[in-house]
Computed example of a mutant assay.
Amino acid sequence: MAENHPAKFRVENIAPILNVSDMVRSLDFYVGILGFKNADWGTDEFSLVSRENSGLYLCKGGQGMPGTWVWIGFDGDIFSLYRELVQKGVTIVLAPTNFSWACEMQVKDPDGHVLRFGTDPDEQQPFADR
C-alpha cells in the first residue's frame, strides 16, 4: 500500500459557487431576506454574498449546478429565524428539527438551492434520527 503524503497547503476559505438565473432576485433573497452583504465588486453576472467570515458566490448561468445543498451553521435561535423566514414567504423544506448532529431547518432559495441552517442540537429533547 502506498504511503499517504497529503499536499502541503493551508486552506484559507471554502465558498461554494451557486448557479443563479437572475442576480437581482438572488440578491433580494440573500441580502434583503437573509441579511448577507453583497460584495462591492459584484456584477450582474458574478458576486459574493457574505456574513461574518463566510460567503457564497453567485454566478449567473455559468458555474455551479441547480439544486446545490449548502450547510450554514450558526449560533442563534433557529425557531425565531424560522418564524421570520415563514413571514417573509421563504420556501421551507424542513421546519426546525432536532437531530443528533444539529437542530436543523432547510429552506430553498429562488433557484432551488437548499440551505441547511443548523445550530447545536438540544440534548434535552428527543432526536428525530433516533
Rank of each mutant, 00 (worst) to 15 (best):
D75V: 14
M65D: 14
L81K: 10
L58I: 05
V24A: 15
I78L: 03
L85M: 03
C103Y: 02
D22K: 04
F36P: 05
F99H: 04
L27Y: 00
I14H: 04
W69G: 04
W101E: 13
Q106T: 10
A39Q: 08
F9R: 12
W69A: 09
D75K: 15
P96A: 02
G67L: 00
G118F: 12
L85I: 09
Q125F: 07
P6C: 02
S47K: 01
C59H: 08
E45M: 09
G32V: 08
P126D: 12
S100V: 09
H5Q: 11
F79I: 01
S21H: 05
D120F: 15
L27F: 08
G118N: 07
A7P: 00
S47F: 15
P96Q: 00
R83V: 11
D77Y: 10
L34G: 00
P66E: 08
K60L: 08
W71C: 14
D40H: 12
L115F: 02
D111P: 14
R51S: 12
A2F: 12
N98M: 11
P126G: 08
E84L: 11
D129C: 12
F36A: 04
L18E: 07
S80G: 06
C59N: 13
V31E: 06
N13Q: 13
F79S: 00
I14S: 07
I78S: 02
F46V: 10
A7S: 11
I92F: 15
V31F: 00
E12H: 13
Q63N: 12
F74A: 13
D22C: 03
F79N: 01
V86N: 11
E52M: 15
A7F: 07
N38F: 02
M1C: 15
G64K: 07
D111I: 14
P6L: 06
Q87H: 13
K37E: 11
S54F: 03
L18R: 02
D120G: 11
T97I: 06
V70N: 01
L27P: 09
L18S: 01
K60I: 12
H113D: 03
D77N: 07
F117K: 05
H5V: 13
